[in-house]
Design a protein around this nucleic acid. Sequence first.
DNA 1: ACTATATAATTCACTCGTCAAATTAATATA
DNA 2: TATATTAATTTGACGAGTGAATTATATAGT
Lengths: 405, 405
Amino acid sequence: MKTRQVEDQRESGRRLVLATIRNRERIARIDIAEATSLSPATVTTITGELLINGLIEEIAPDNPKRDAKRGRPRVGLKIRGGAHLVAGLKLADKNATVALMDFEGKLQGEHAQRLPRKIPDQNEIVHFIEDLLDQATAKIGLKPGDLSGVGIGLAGVIDARRGFVHWSPTLKERNLPLRPLLEEKISLPFFIDNDVNLVAVAEQWFGLGRNVNNFIVVTIEQGVGMGIVIDGKIYRGARGCGAEFGHTKVHLDGALCRCGQRGCLEAYVADYALLREANLSASASGTDNADQQVSALFYKAKAGDKTAQSIFRRAGKMFALGLANVVNIFDPGLIILSGERMQFDYLYAGEVIENMKSSVVQIDVPPPEVRIHKWGDLMWAKGAAVYAMEAVTEIALEGLASDAS
Amino acid sequence: MKTRQVEDQRESGRRLVLATIRNRERIARIDIAEATSLSPATVTTITGELLINGLIEEIAPDNPKRDAKRGRPRVGLKIRGGAHLVAGLKLADKNATVALMDFEGKLQGEHAQRLPRKIPDQNEIVHFIEDLLDQATAKIGLKPGDLSGVGIGLAGVIDARRGFVHWSPTLKERNLPLRPLLEEKISLPFFIDNDVNLVAVAEQWFGLGRNVNNFIVVTIEQGVGMGIVIDGKIYRGARGCGAEFGHTKVHLDGALCRCGQRGCLEAYVADYALLREANLSASASGTDNADQQVSALFYKAKAGDKTAQSIFRRAGKMFALGLANVVNIFDPGLIILSGERMQFDYLYAGEVIENMKSSVVQIDVPPPEVRIHKWGDLMWAKGAAVYAMEAVTEIALEGLASDAS
DNA sequence: ACTATATAATTCACTCGTCAAATTAATATA
DNA sequence: TATATTAATTTGACGAGTGAATTATATAGT
């Protein structure tokens, strides 16, 4: 900590250059200069450092036709995938998914495993994750020690800053300091967050949120979740726990929610809410096929069953109302509806979207775009991996300062 | 535009130092160094520039007792009030208020005037504002030309970036490019924003939001408004128009709102909603005493009238629900309830707040603090002035770069 | 084949801003 | 009056970024 302002300048330059290379996948120095509005000279210096430290590499001129331009050919730079390997875990209600990702963002391996219904205690969760990492890395001939970091996405209320789980449907215990517990047993940096936030990160890197600075992601699965991106960063509230869209109230003294309160959006659109309406308790007919039951209900509605239709119609209305509230408060530029349930079009049908748009303050500017993105657990795990990678990148860049010889 | 990174560094240093002096009112160089983690040497350089350019000034050692410490006494620095004068206007439904403020944030004059019911056209609004500025400045023996900028707060949906009024209850016309219109006639920079955002700015500078980086302000008057501060900055949505809390839906297909939609919070808690319930149309018994009618209704409820009580009770419940939704989505650290109607305790009664807190996701961290701040139109105008001053400061700092000799 | 032209990347001399250390300034205390 | 103490300024050095010149590497033209 010699100086402050001066070092900061260089460090932010490195960050900027690395981010630019990431974003553009492969890019020549001159284009980096253009994109970052740094001078070519500075770009040479910074990329030189990054090359020495192995974070980036030059790429062979892959364009044999070279656009028929003359002059010295630009040499492409890219992230060096081998620089770091991270793991991302998605712990859902019934199964866990692992994604292994290199520093370039490429998937290097994956692994899935069933989960005991609820993980009862601290020890078991730590062991379970340890196992998961063992098996996942073994698949590609490596060990957990080869990882530079692990990201974990979990449903529930999570304080990402502390890696603290206030509450999660996956765990039996409340108020679990998960990160300290894990880091005590496994000597790796862990990064824990609400799973929807990690979907938002995944959308930012690989999905519909690329180069969009302000958007929100809404997921419907067991519960209803939301991730908010403002100025390119995940927004976390003052108390460190993210957007609880599912427990937004859509009806005064309305339907009972599993959180104990009444009128939550979740109590109208989540799986259990739909089944409850249909008088099909999930626990009554086997815990595992709630999915199938919801599917069955959906196809019944499709087939013309009035009761089933009514259930989905109400859910759609409530969803539209909740969404409109978010739009009225946040005015996001883009809304991404994501998650397993998005295969059921009742929630993103034109009617629901129109409903939402007509409940938004009307001005002569078009309402936010709504896009649907259905993807499975692996994408959530990739989001978790990316989350870890952002953190690992940060650590790498900080460490680089003293490294420079 | 010689260099980029290098000049930026100096400029951000100036910004930082000036902001620190603002925040601390009077502060010695050594303390600035401490607060900004710049070196004393740099602080000397920067404050020297600011002194030469007349933005700050040294203050005589006002502490005759000097804490009984020895050594060279620290010389205080403060913002030089005379550096710039700005005006802030609050245009409400029935009256307009002007605040004149010096560069130090001190009120230099004020002025109020009744407003015609609705301003019909472009020309009139420009003339009206021109008049207002003339009269306000005349009161302290100056002219509008002595101003460095004018901030204007207006209810409705405003795009602050463009100074564009999508819609305002004060104006008859929709889609009015107010800033260009004003700047065409009056050669001063104008800064226009939603009035609640300006209240938020005022809270940040003078009120309960001092040194709080994340909070929201909610006001109830003719309508219901909200201002959001994230990371010390006013949050503006993607479309440039702020938080429309009042048109958040609290009931599916609920009460009819003046915006034409149903179930808006405003349709339950705003003046017209209360009077409508009480079967007292504002327009029926004279437009001007809606205030008094609401007051009368309030005291009737206080006196035990069941009907009146029921009206306020429902309004309170809906308000609590809407507020809970904002908390669930945003998780702000502090909520400031502000505005004229806050004198009626039905909306911030312990019961309502408790109601809200019990509708928020429950974790083992205390829910956000709620504080009440009742203040009149002058404070809104001061907020508008501060808003202008922030902009003027920015301009002054930018101009300084080339000035430096 | 050779030169001219074009473009990318690097090198180098210079400027600007910050900082640590030394110096000067201004006070209280012995 | 001398000494101690703290604030502010000055000074010399250093780090980072830049423009201009230089080097590298290609194509186009003859």
